[in-house]
Amino acid sequence: MLSAPRLPSAMALILLTIFVAAIPVAYCYPTAFQALEGSSSNRTSIKFLVIGDWGGVPHPPYITPVQKATAREMSQVAEQMGADFVLALGDNFYYKGVDSVDSPRFKDTFEAVYTAKSLKVPWYVLAGNHDHAGNVKAQIEYSQRSDRWKFPSYYYELNFHIPNTGKTLTIIMLDTVMLCGNSLDYEDEKPKGPLRAVDANRQLTWLQERLARSRADFLLVAGHYPVWSVSEHGPTHCLLQKVHPLLLKHNTTAYLCGHDHNLQYIEESGVGYVVSGAGNFLDSDIRHWNHVPKGSVKFFTGQASTLGGFVHAEVTKNKMIVTFFQAKGTSLYRTVLSQRHFE
Rank of each mutant, 00 (worst) to 15 (best):
Ser3Cys: 05
Pro5Ala: 04
Ile18Ala: 14
Phe19Ser: 14
Phe19Asp: 02
Tyr29Val: 00
Ala35Asn: 14
Glu37Arg: 15
Gly38Asn: 15
Asn42Thr: 14
Val50Gly: 03
Ile51Cys: 09
Gly56Tyr: 05
His59Glu: 10
Tyr62Asp: 11
Thr64Ala: 02
Thr64Met: 02
Val77Arg: 07
Met81Glu: 13
Asp84His: 10
Val86Ser: 01
Ala88Glu: 09
Gly90Pro: 08
Val98Trp: 00
Pro104Glu: 09
Lys107Arg: 12
Lys107Cys: 08
Asp108Met: 12
Val113His: 05
Lys117Cys: 00
Lys117Ala: 13
Ala127Leu: 01
Asp131His: 09
Ala133Lys: 14
Gly134Lys: 11
Val136Trp: 06
Lys137Ser: 14
Lys137Trp: 11
Lys137Ile: 07
Trp149Val: 00
Pro152Gly: 06
Pro152Trp: 03
Glu157Lys: 15
Ile162Leu: 12
Gly166Cys: 05
Gly166Ala: 08
Leu169Cys: 10
Ile172Met: 10
Ile172Gly: 06
Met173Val: 14
Leu174Ile: 06
Val177Trp: 00
Gly181Met: 07
Leu184Glu: 14
Tyr186Cys: 09
Asp188Phe: 13
Pro191Ala: 05
Gly193Tyr: 07
Pro194Glu: 08
Arg196Lys: 10
Ala200Lys: 06
Leu207Cys: 07
Gln208Ala: 10
Leu211Tyr: 02
Arg213Glu: 15
Asp217Val: 06
Leu219Phe: 04
Tyr225His: 10
Trp228Ala: 01
Val230Arg: 08
Pro235Asp: 04
Leu239Cys: 03
His244Asn: 13
Asn251Ser: 11
Asp260Ile: 03
Glu268Leu: 04
Val271His: 04
Tyr273Thr: 02
Ser276His: 08
Leu282Gly: 04
Ser284Pro: 11
Trp289Glu: 10
Trp289Ser: 09
Pro293Leu: 04
Pro293Ser: 10
Ser296Cys: 07
Ser296Tyr: 03
Phe299Met: 09
Gln303His: 11
Gly309Cys: 13
Phe310Asn: 10
Thr323Asn: 07
Phe324Glu: 11
Lys328Thr: 12
Thr330Ile: 10
Thr330Cys: 05
